[in-house]
Design a protein around this nucleic acid. Structure first.
Length: 654
RNA sequence: GGGGACGUAGUUCAGUUGGUUAGAACGCUGCCCUGUCACGGCAGAGGCCGCGGGUUCGAGUCCCGUCGUCCCCGCCA
């Protein structure tokens, strides 16, 4: 039996032909002696009619068919007397001669329909059923077309796709690595690549001149709607480039990728300096589809007002068009939101038709209220929202960043974002370093191979915060699509940078020795960029989450609900790798409140644990981590003169 | 790690100030039906109210904890 047509492909022109279609039973309408099956495949749905009088055998089988049964139908394509304009095959139907039930199916947990409102949890668990819907098909097909077009475009521009290792070495900076234990070298680990960064630079040293790769990258960080632990990049690198050469390549790629999705994008894309993006939009990925630009209004707040309001840094404001009618409750919600984002406070000016009012008029005076509104270009009917920061953190515009998030939220709520726009933007002029509060040191703002603006080189050791990088980001509609840079190609400068980052000679040799060596053998100037293709596809598909354009996505807890990964593995597998799993538990002491992080090798060994630790409360008690037969964790105490064990309930600690 | 929302039938949801036997729609099962196309009609099955404690004479409802999903902050060179 050979399939002759896709269900969804039958048209009036096929009328009179014999056809064999194969697919899933989408719906059954049983009228007694007349029975209809809608049969569905990738291409669409066709109605099949079974008549008990003319084809009793086929009809009898069709009575057995249920939703999602897999069937083959042999029959004649027939023009309908009453066409159904709702479906593409509506002018015809297949008059069944024979029905083969190829497979049964359990009743699906949710209907396989165009519009679904099943919980995402259920959809992910039964992804194979979710994938039968037209929308996921469409998204995956679009993804395929985009990637195909990108490969074509890159090839036409002389780029060569080269594969780089998935089992590579851990690089200490950046995101957490996914580690893969080595069976041959116990205690040693490969890391899955966060990006092929060093390899692609080495390909340039290898004279490849123009490299690209559509490649999976892995980062073990918390997930978001636009972040998965494994994601796909268009990674590229070129030798002897000017910045605009790389921009041209990406603009070419993006214009053609957009065209595939039926979207017209115009190159060249506009440029913006990082510091302008922060000050005007409060973001390093500004959404240019709407205005509501930020303005610094710090000088509208006199010293005494600042003191009273406990404003430690700058104040940024923007005008929300048509929001003057916002209620007290809505303003309170906005204030709470601002505080939740780390603001000291939020202040409002309402430009209502009947007059201008402000929540801070008494504190800053009518003149300053006017000045504030004017600075934002507010018109009658607008609401001006100003946000202050608690304190100014070195070199950052904390208030601007908070205002930027509120700008986005209000812009969305007020419906002023033109969703038909496709606003690409190049961001340049990034600082090379940023201050890490956690590490109390300067760290690379991008990655440590990012080129340094030539005239800033001398400040590398003296004024690192002033050094600008040769990095750039591509932003579309407020989403960061990718980032790249002209790289450092001189070994001496690369080494100076590593030192400025605080790496010792020994660390440097151990981690990057091979790369520094490679740099000494005639490295051409080179640079590149990587684009997140999941995000590109998400935007071009009009989706709000990259999970919608990834066939098998993970939840925010990095779990694959269908495959049930991650999972435990057999002890034998661990043995081969020389790995044991420690059960680590944190328990608190009721005397000192201290949190003890305790590792047991096996949960099944009651009473097994490290030796007692004396309690820092000075009460002379000792902590004994214990585990009982039912696997309950506790810390037990023994104090002098008290032979009884005191059990402490485990509790969560900060 | 922190904040927020949600968790009740296979699915999507409702469930009053805590009060008898927890409802609806769709789906599912059986029967009837020859032009339906979200077919229709009749009958029926289906519930650890996420899980564990607590308060109470009594908990889907209140409290505490926990697990899961989603969104955000941190994090993501």
């Amino acid at each position: 039996m050979k399939r002759t047509h896709y269900c969804g492909a039958l048209r009036a022109a096929d009328a009179g032909r014999d056809a064999t279609v194969m697919g899933w039973v989408h719906r059954r309408r049983d009228l007694g002696n007349l029975l209809f099956l809608d049969v569905r495949d990738r291409a669409g749905i066709v109605q099949v009619v079974f008549n008990k009088e003319t084809q009793p055998e086929a009809h009898a089988k069709a009575e057995q068919a249920r939703s999602e049964f897999v069937v083959a139908v042999e029959g004649k394509v027939t023009k309908r007397e009453k066409p159904n304009p709702e479906i593409a095959t509506g002018e015809v139907e297949l008059v069944a001669a024979k029905l083969h039930i190829l497979n049964n199916a359990k009743t699906p947990p949710f209907p396989i329909e165009e519009e679904i409102n099943a919980a995402e949890e259920t959809r992910l668990k039964f992804r194979y059923l979710d994938l039968r819907r037209p929308k996921p098909h469409k998204n995956l097909a679009l993804r395929h077309k985009i990637i195909l077009e990108i490969r074509k475009t890159m090839d036409e521009m002389g780029f060569i796709e080269v594969e780089t290792p998935m089992l590579t070495r851990s690089t200490p900076e950046g995101a957490r690595d996914y580690l893969v234990p080595s069976r041959v070298h116990h205690g040693n680990f490969y890391a899955l690549p966060q990006s092929p960064q060093i390899f692609k630079q080495i390909l340039m040293i290898g004279g490849l001149d123009r490299y690209f790769q559509i490649v999976k990258c892995f980062r073990d960080e918390d997930l978001r709607a636009d972040r998965q632990p494994e994601f796909t990049q268009l990674d590229l690198e070129m030798s002897f480039p000017r910045q605009e050469d790389i921009f041209n390549v990406i603009e070419n790629v993006m214009v053609r990728a957009c065209a595939v999705a039926g979207i017209e994008a115009k190159a060249p894309f506009p440029h913006m300096l990082y510091k302008d993006a922060i000050r005007k939009y409060g973001s390093d990925k500004p959404d240019m589809r709407f205005g509501m630009e930020l303005h610094e209004v710090t000088d509208c707040f006199p010293a005494e007002a600042k003191e009273k309001l406990q404003i430690g840094g700058s104040v940024f404001a923007f005008a929300a068009p048509g929001a003057a009618a916002y209620s007290r409750k809505q303003l309170d919600e906005l204030t709470e939101k601002a505080k939740g984002l780390g603001a000291r406070g939020a202040y409002f000016v309402k430009l209502a038709a009947e007059g201008t009012t402000s929540t801070v008029e008494k504190l800053i005076g009518a003149e300053n209220v006017k000045k504030l509104a004017a600075a934002c270009g507010a018109k009658t009917g607008d609401l001006v929202m100003a946000v202050s920061a608690k304190e100014e953190i070195k070199g950052t515009e904390a208030a601007a960043l908070i205002a930027g998030q509120l700008r986005l939220q209000l812009g969305e709520a007020l419906g002023v974002i033109d969703k038909s726009q496709w606003k690409f933007l190049w961001l340049t002029g990034f600082p090379l370093f940023e201050w890490s509060e956690t590490d109390k040191t300067w760290v690379s703002a991008q990655h440590p191979f990012t080129g340094i603006v030539d005239e800033d080189l001398e400040k590398l050791e003296t004024a690192p915060w002033e050094v600008r990088s040769k990095g750039y980001d591509l932003v579309l509609n407020g989403v960061e699509l990718g980032s790249g840079s002209i790289r450092i190609h001189r070994q001496d400068i690369q080494e100076r940078l590593f030192r400025a980052l605080g790496l010792s000679e020994e660390q440097l040799r151990r981690r990057f020795g091979f790369f520094l060596d490679a740099l000494t053998y005639g490295t051409p100037p080179h640079g590149g960029i990587a684009l997140g293709l999941d995000r590109v596809t998400m935007l071009l598909a009009g989706e709000k989450s990259i999970r919608e354009v990834i066939a098998f996505a993970k939840t925010t807890a990095a779990v694959d609900l269908m495959a049930e990964s991650p999972s435990e593995v057999d002890a034998a597998q661990l043995d081969q790798l020389g790995i044991g799993v420690l059960n680590v538990k944190e328990v608190a002491c009721q005397w000192c409140g201290g949190a003890w992080r305790i590792a047991f090798e096996k949960l099944s060994e009651p009473g097994h644990g490290p030796h007692g630790i004396s309690c820092p409360s000075g009460r002379g008690v000792e902590h004994f981590p214990m585990i009982d037969t039912s696997g309950i964790w506790s810390v037990k105490h023994r104090s002098p003169g008290n032979s009884d064990w005191l059990q402490i309930e485990p509790r969560r600690t900060a």
